[in-house]
Computed example of a mutant assay.
Amino acid sequence: MFKGLGTAMITPFDKELNVDYNSLKTFVKYQLDNGVDSLIVLGTTGEAPAIEEEEREKIVNTVVEIVNKKIPVIVGTGTNNVNHVLKNNKVAESAGADGLLIVTPYYNKSTQKGLVEYFKYISERTTLPIIMYNVPSRTGMNILPETVVSIHENCKNVIGVKEASGNISQIGELFSIKPDSLKVFSGNDDQVLPIMSLGGDGLISVTSNVAPRPFVELTHSILNNDLEKARKLNNQFMKLNKLLFKEVNPIPVKYAVSLLGLCENVVRLPLVKASQETEKLLKEEMERLDLA
Score class of each variant (00 low, 15 high):
residue 97 A to K: 11
residue 105 P to Q: 10
residue 127 T to E: 15
residue 93 E to K: 10
residue 103 V to W: 01
residue 9 M to F: 08
residue 163 E to Y: 07
residue 161 V to F: 09
residue 252 P to E: 13
residue 267 V to N: 06
residue 162 K to R: 14
residue 235 N to R: 13
residue 148 V to H: 07
residue 32 L to P: 08
residue 55 E to A: 08
residue 58 K to D: 13
residue 98 D to V: 06
residue 97 A to F: 07
residue 24 L to K: 03
residue 17 L to Y: 14
residue 132 M to T: 03
residue 72 P to C: 09
residue 221 S to V: 01
residue 233 L to W: 01
residue 151 I to T: 07
residue 188 N to I: 13
residue 11 T to S: 14
residue 176 S to A: 08
residue 104 T to M: 05
residue 49 P to R: 11
residue 179 P to D: 13
residue 10 I to D: 08
residue 213 R to V: 05
residue 259 L to I: 03
residue 150 S to K: 15
residue 59 I to K: 07
residue 31 Q to N: 14
residue 143 I to M: 15
residue 258 S to V: 10
residue 163 E to Q: 11
residue 288 R to Y: 11
residue 35 G to D: 13
residue 127 T to P: 00
residue 93 E to F: 12
residue 278 T to W: 04
residue 103 V to T: 14
residue 270 P to G: 05
residue 95 A to Q: 12
residue 56 R to I: 04
residue 33 D to R: 09
residue 173 E to W: 03
residue 173 E to I: 01
residue 232 K to D: 14
residue 64 V to R: 13
residue 101 L to N: 14
residue 10 I to E: 11
residue 39 L to R: 12
residue 196 M to S: 06
residue 10 I to Q: 09
residue 253 V to Q: 07
residue 119 F to N: 13
residue 231 R to V: 00
residue 158 V to T: 13
residue 159 I to K: 13
residue 72 P to M: 12
residue 50 A to E: 12
residue 112 Q to V: 00
residue 108 N to G: 02
residue 182 L to S: 08
residue 69 K to M: 07
residue 28 V to H: 04
residue 80 N to P: 00
